[in-house]
Simulated assay, not measured.
Amino acid sequence: MAHLNIAPSELIRMNEATTTAPKTVESALLTLNDSYDRLILVSQSEQLDGIQPDEATLVIVCDWLLWQQISSIYPHSIFYEAGMKFRTADDDLGETLFLKANDWVYAVGEEKMRFMGVVLGKMYASEMTRANINYYRIFRTLVPLIENFNVREIIYFDYRNEINFFDYAFRKNLIRTLAEERNLSFIDKSNEDDDNKHTVGPQSSTKQTDSLRSFLRHTYGFTLQTLSRLSSNLQKPKPRVAVLVNSNLLKPLLDGFDRHNVTPIINLLSVPKSFSAIWKSLRNGTILFYSRETSLNITDLDKIQVIEDSIQSFEMPKNLAPAIQFSIDYFKKQILEKGRLVEAGRAV
């Protein structure tokens, strides 16, 4: 195979103006060997600089466009989703994935996480669902490639989904564990400085701590809450009904409500931030409540610490499903070790 004298990243830049018909995964699979000694996992062209095309090495590319650009340079390369082509097992994951977010809670024990009557672990169901989606995408693409091509070694630069949810360290450790469980050699070539920071995980949604912004938000909330209570008290008493829906569902409800025989109680933060929506809520006697995180006293913090300790000390049974093991590991590393459980306590 020809030796590359120019870095692949430079070749790609030189050929950017060249247009060819996109290569399909199906056609590319037909040209690959039956087996490879190793897989190289990459997500950026620069990671291939210094890597020579090798018939014993299969390059797994996490970026479809990048794979299109390098496929002529590295004929033994494939887009990572090709692993799905080797799956033969059928299951109901497509219908049950969103129901699995709290499976790990039941494995650890609900009572161990109960705080003021609320199971804190379940408050992270949305985040755990997104984490599980990424876990299954990684597991169900990489493992079939390992097994189908009988590889003995993984050279790791990066392995991610198009929607990257895991941070650098967690992503790398996940692949390392996957390799070790299959007795594969794992060579780490990753570089955190080169890691793409455009993630969608919890690390990308840190809360604003600006004091002026916080003051204005609280002033806005308490002012409208007070006005709505005054407006409601001036009207004839009616049964009160809590309406807990998101903004998209709330808008048509507010538009259609005209002083019926109930008094809606609505979270102010769900009300569309427009003068007409707020004015109509006040005029119709809707009670707007402003919820904010409360401070926790020493007793509360001690209770949360007990919950953290009980989760950290949980020993996973050997027969525990891999996905549940992953969820527990994720919760420990991304929630507990980063001190985030107290956020759920404040929200309660």
Rank of each mutant, 00 (worst) to 15 (best):
T57F: 10
L65D: 10
I40L: 11
P53N: 10
K23R: 15
Q52R: 07
Q69I: 02
P22C: 03
L48W: 04
S45D: 14
Y80T: 01
Q44N: 14
D49Q: 01
L48F: 06
V59S: 06
S71D: 03
I70D: 03
W67F: 11
L39P: 12
K23F: 12
Q44K: 15
E26C: 06
I60Q: 01
A21Y: 07
V42P: 02
P22W: 03
S45Q: 14
L66D: 04
G50C: 03
Q47D: 05
E46R: 09
I40E: 00
D54I: 13
S35P: 01
E46Y: 12
A28T: 00
A21T: 12
P75K: 09
V25S: 11
N33M: 03
N33E: 14
Q69N: 05
L39F: 10
H76F: 13
E46M: 10
L39H: 09
Q52H: 12
S35M: 10
Q47L: 09
E26W: 10
T24Q: 05
W67S: 02
E55S: 04
S43E: 14
L66N: 06
Y80R: 07
P75D: 10
L32A: 00
S72K: 15
Y74A: 08
Y36H: 06
Q44A: 14
Q52P: 13
D49T: 04
Y74Q: 09
D37K: 02
Y36D: 03
S77C: 09
Y80P: 02
L66T: 02
Q52S: 12
S77R: 08
